[in-house]
Design a binder for these strands. Sequence first.
DNA 1: GTCAAGCATTTGTCATGACATCTTGACGTC
DNA 2: GACGTCAAGATGTCATGACAAATGCTTGAC
Lengths: 245, 245
Amino acid sequence: MPSPRFTLDRSSPVPLYFQVAEQLEQAIVSGEIEAGERLENEIAMAQDLGLSRPTMRQAIQVLVDKGMLVRRRGVGTQVVRGQVHRPVELTSLFDDLSASGHQPHTKLLSIEQVGASEEIAEELQVSPDAPVWSVRRLRSIGEEPLALMHNYLPCDVVELGGVDLETQGLYAFLRDAGFVIRVARQRISARGVSGEESALLDEPEDSPLLTMQRTAYDNSGRAVEFGRHAYRPSLYSFDMTLVDR
Amino acid sequence: MPSPRFTLDRSSPVPLYFQVAEQLEQAIVSGEIEAGERLENEIAMAQDLGLSRPTMRQAIQVLVDKGMLVRRRGVGTQVVRGQVHRPVELTSLFDDLSASGHQPHTKLLSIEQVGASEEIAEELQVSPDAPVWSVRRLRSIGEEPLALMHNYLPCDVVELGGVDLETQGLYAFLRDAGFVIRVARQRISARGVSGEESALLDEPEDSPLLTMQRTAYDNSGRAVEFGRHAYRPSLYSFDMTLVDR
DNA sequence: GTCAAGCATTTGTCATGACATCTTGACGTC
DNA sequence: GACGTCAAGATGTCATGACAAATGCTTGAC
């Protein structure tokens, strides 16, 4: 029954349950708590740390939601075996690559205001033919083209004029502009390359592409962005963890 | 400020927070509460229903996790705009199709015990060359081939001898056999068809395929199943909702 | 008129206490 | 020896109370 020493800072603005969750996660990934091992019971852990049980439960719940811990009533809480893949998150590919130490590069292919097609209008919750930004970018890693991205944003919500989307990811810009993206719905599938894409992505004819289309909503529930992306499957995939609740 | 009438059954084994979550979700999908609308505050809703605030919060949290509601401190809770797509869940394709009213059909291509390759052994947390079940199935919808599925299960965990995997999905069998799948990790990508697949899936050479590989863990954190699947992208895609927490 | 301070509202966090329910193993009976 | 019962231990659910922090509006000073 492992009981690593966690340190709590009650004067920190970071919530206690989050401090515990972070350190517990660290203990798991570092191997201090072994895979398959059972944790001490909630009440004892809470007492050890001078916390209430709800707070301790909340901390554990964070890792349960991440798929790192599994709870069984009447038994206890165990560490899930198997290595953790980084899951799909509400970040952009740009952030993904930056975080993994690679040097992504973005080429702005086009940016213009167009009238929303029927599909776009529905996804963005605007009237058909309403003005929307249409942005096409090519993302590469080193000399290797990686993804072709086509995004749409409502003009009356976002002002993209003069924004440098080559040095800054779209999501980073939206964050800086005060948009808090809280929810996104996406669909992943595949298709063959089209003619123009073939040259841009440096893929031969009939190559398969991994496609993702996503609509993102800010913290007021309003649609902010809709995008259709195509990835070279040899260089990109989507990892995720599913948790049954 | 909407305040639909919810009914609670305190003698029911269904938790109160779940009863509320279900009815709240129903009110949202039915349009009784409009998209974008703000909910009454937690305390008032709790009082209206004769519940405590934590219970009411837990009910709301269920829908926040589903991406249907968005909370903002100091403001309130709002309904996310935009239609809901059914997300990727811990069910099998078989369940997916059955639920959507179609008639899936499964053909068992092969089932045998083999020694685990290095990759399989690592995914399933068994020793290399340990005996594992190797199951290959072709799933169709009507006359249309849909997916080619290749699954591996540790022999010392699951007994597949005599199991009819043509009328029953793999996950349904595992459930009946007492396995509770709680966590799964999966990776989605794409590739071109290989020779044998081309005929089985009725796709021409060089067609793109959507691929998914998944490792599933039971409620003790043990790896139970590893599978590599290939889908015809014209007939299948992965929908999911991402929520930032 | 504009900006800043203050206030009301609402969600976020945390504590304490209680009981329910499930699991497992020990014990006793048949 | 097999089976059922019981008790211990763990998580699941629910209630009450309190304070913190963010937001948006109102009010007041300049």
